[in-house]
């Protein structure tokens, strides 16, 4: 039995018919081609599939599509404005916080959710906000640096 849902993704409104077992991650990746959300574990443990739902960072592998009716979703693809990448994305590049890149979209979105609530987080606050995002490549040092640099940049961008 299909369900009709309506939701906003990256500022665009979508009406979609979904299967009861379909996950938000499947809708994004398989139906809309928004491949920036990655599937790393399917059990909510790695954070690679993180997106923003009504401003909160959520693991989209754990959310059924039927449950996002009416929600406002932001994926990594939604961060660019007028062809310009977001200051936080820029900070990840410049701080060398990207290696294989598989964790990167989720990491950036978790960090963004934090910075929206807390524009000047301490190291500890950054660590707590990103505790659900695994990265096997970087050792995390540069990710913390990137979030701090991103916070600075975001202040300057108003």
């Amino acid at each position: 039995m299909k369900h009709a849902i309506e939701l906003t993704i990256n500022g665009k409104c979508y009406q979609i018919e979904v299967e009861p077992e379909e996950r938000l991650l499947d809708v994004l990746r398989d139906r809309l081609g928004l491949i920036g959300a990655k599937e790393g574990c399917s059990t909510g443990d790695c954070g690679a599939c993180t997106v923003l739902m009504n401003g909160q960072a959520v693991t989209s592998c754990m959310i059924l599509a039927v449950a996002v009716d009416g929600a406002d979703i932001t994926t990594i693809e939604g961060l660019e404005k007028d062809g310009e990448i977001h200051p936080l994305q820029k900070a990840f590049i410049e701080e060398g916080a990207v290696q294989c890149g598989y964790c990167t979209p989720g990491m950036i979105l978790s960090a963004l959710a934090l910075l929206k609530e807390n524009p000047e987080p301490s190291d500890d606050e950054i660590r707590r906000a990103l505790a659900g995002n695994l990265c096997r490549c970087t050792g995390y040092t540069r990710i913390i640096a990137a979030v701090k640099a991103g916070a600075e940049r975001m202040k300057n961008h108003g």
Partner: peptide
């Protein structure tokens, strides 16, 4: 040197097998 591939990775555009 900064990595050129980081640009597509932060944008979620890098294509892995599952993509």
């Amino acid at each position: 040197m900064l990595r050129p591939d980081a640009r597509e990775k932060v944008r979620g555009r890098a294509v892995y097998v599952a993509d």
